[in-house]
């Protein structure tokens, strides 16, 4: 078994970018059901966290920009860690992720110990 980081990305501009409290509430169930499904298979390492919209990016010479959003359309909204036998299996487990229902994406990356 290997650990994999799932990175959830979603569009941060445009009409779909800001969710109302009701929409957020409605998203809770699919997320919990999906995490619960992975956990029931004993393949969840950490449910992870959501990330706030605002953030800073530090570049060489202490150049600070607010947010990584200048060049790319999608921003990281959260992450989880799962375990699986292979990248294929981890990818398979990610297919039910609710981020896909709102036009987002999941990036699956193998975690390598430091």
């Amino acid at each position: 078994m290997q650990d994999f980081l799932l990175i959830f990305r979603r569009e941060h501009t445009g009409p779909q970018s800001v969710l109302s409290p009701e929409q957020l509430q409605a998203m809770m169930k699919p997320w919990q059901d999906w995490l619960g499904s992975i956990a029931a298979q004993n393949k969840l390492v950490a449910a992870g966290n959501r990330l706030a919209h605002e953030g800073n990016v530090i570049r060489p010479n202490n150049v600070i920009t607010n947010g990584p959003y200048v060049e790319i359309k999608e921003a990281i909204g959260g992450y989880s860690i799962i375990k699986a036998e292979s990248l294929e299996e981890a990818t398979e487990l990610s297919k039910g992720c609710p981020i896909l229902m709102v036009g987002g994406s999941v990036e699956v990356r193998t975690i390598i110990a430091m």
Partner: peptide
């Protein structure tokens, strides 16, 4: 009950909790 099992499994996996959740 489903949501409570979802949360329980995320921190404390057990076969019986996985079955009850389903």
């Amino acid at each position: 009950i489903l949501q409570l099992y979802n949360r329980l499994l995320q921190t404390h996996y057990s076969p019986i909790a996985a079955l009850n959740r389903t």
